[in-house]
């Protein structure tokens, strides 16, 4: 660079010098552009869930006091969840359905854990637009299929929390969970 700076510019105006200078200008602009792009990443990423929110990803629930036929509402990642102890009749009703006729075909066995088929654990978030369906509380409307009923737009879920009627596109979502003992289930 030093030689170019001190030399008479008119003499250096040949093709070689111009090309080299253009290259440096383009490189400088390119590097500045790359830097600006990289700087945007943290500015965008800061809006993702923070570490304290991400840490809420697992919760232990004591299920010892839930009688067959009862359900409780709890929370996981600040979302409501249903934990339901199915009666043998409800299990039979769910298994009697021809899966291929369902909008979101799944069997009850696919939606519960082996050895704990009576425990139906789902998000309490209607897959239509996110309302909390009724049916977990004592005396609430369970809808036409005996499971859950969403009062917002009339979606009805059956005893395996599968969508049977109304606008919801999918069954209530089953979160990841494991039974850490017979009475405690860890969600997440």
């Amino acid at each position: 660079m030093a030689t170019v700076e001190q030399a008479d510019p008119v003499l250096k105006e040949d093709g070689e010098g111009v090309r080299r200078r253009d290259f440096i200008n383009i490189a400088a602009l390119g590097v500045a552009g790359v830097g600006a792009t990289i700087a945007v990443i943290p500015l965008v990423n800061q809006m993702n869930p923070s570490a304290d929110v991400r840490a809420l990803s697992s919760v232990d629930i004591d299920i010892s006091s839930i009688q067959p036929g009862q359900a409780i509402k709890s929370t996981w990642r600040k979302q409501p969840i249903f934990v339901r102890n199915l009666t043998p009749k409800e299990i039979a009703e769910a298994n009697a359905v021809n899966v291929s006729t369902l909008r979101d075909p799944q069997t009850l066995a696919e939606r519960t854990e082996e050895g704990h088929e009576n425990w139906l654990i789902t998000l309490a978030v209607c897959t239509h637009l996110g309302c909390i369906p009724l049916g977990a509380g004592e005396g609430e409307n369970k809808g036409a299929f005996g499971g859950y009923f969403c009062p917002c737009h009339g979606s009805s879920y059956d005893t395996a929390a599968r969508i049977r009627q109304g606008p919801a596109p999918r069954n209530l979502e089953v979160p990841p969970y494991t039974f850490t003992s017979d009475t405690v289930v860890q969600i997440g």
Partner: peptide
């Protein structure tokens, strides 16, 4: 501590 890149901001 917890916000992504929060210390930088």
């Amino acid at each position: 501590r917890d916000v992504n890149s929060g210390w930088l901001m």
